[in-house]
Amino acid sequence: MAGSGTVQLRDDADVLLRVENLVMEFPVGRHQVVHAVSDVSFDVRRGETLGIVGESGCGKSTTARALVQLPRPTSGRVILDPGSDLEIDMTTLSGSSLRQVRPRMQMIFQDPISSLNPRRRVRDIVGEGLVIWQDDKGGSSTRARVDEVLNAVGIEPEVAADRRPHEFSGGQCQRISIARAVAIEPEILICDEPVSALDVSVQAQILNILEDMKARYGLTLVFISHDLSVVRNVSDRVVVMYLGKICEIGGADTLYLEPAHPYTRVLLASAPEPAATVDPSDAAIGDEIPSPINPPSGCRFRTRCPRAADRCASEEPQMRAVGDDHFVACHFPTLA
């Protein structure tokens, strides 16, 4: 798996965000490089939720941060409105013009407490984007908008707006983060593991709020998680990543019903209550994830893959279609 290629990219007017050949590398020590994301391409249609799933070190969070250019990717393109007259490649923008585009793409982080400045009040946190971008600096229209988005995420503005973050629970802090992100009417909301730091009884609240926000404000979501169950629940389309490469892309239910990549099968079989569509023995792979500093040749999953053959070490698999809107990068997919 762990393949390259761009056949999975769709070519229609509805595509709002397209990522082409994204590469993110970080230098470590002397002459060594972490290959965090290596040649990853995907796109997201307007109003769609794209899930990105994988284990730690698969590059999913790095990809999310590369989308917002924090930091800028090593190479590749991140394009808004591809193919239209308004096409913008965010990777080519300079500091101030990048800043002008930023409100279109907002982000929610994993750690709800760390996401909010402990020294500022909720009203100022949520209104920050409005104060930056509107002429009415903190005036009545800002106040009204802050109240509106706080209400939308289920926080009572009268009670909460003048408090500081430490007075709130993790779930409430995550609601405030969502309110801050949607306050400036973004088109795309990137959610980086938004529920994995929360108690189980609170996760569904946040997932439902995200669905509500999506419907209410017409958002397009990129949802990143290590939990395949959560990703399936919120996503229309899912990208499975491993060690900086894409393994498989397909509809959320398609991936579950007809997993084509051996690694997708592993993920499905590794859930606490394994999926019925895979054999529980599919989870039997080694514990050792190879180092992203020195990833395996050919297919990066081959060192743990039950179907690996000689070809997997010598030749990197390319993305190819195995069904309607279903792509896999594997020489020996479990689905022809």
Binding site: Q203, A204, L207, S229, R232, N233, V234, G251, D253
Partner: peptide, 14 residues
């Protein structure tokens, strides 16, 4: 309240 892996996409969670 917990999404399970065999639940179809966009199932409303309680």
């Amino acid at each position: 309240t917990i999404p399970r892996i065999d639940m179809p996409s966009h199932s409303r969670l309680v």
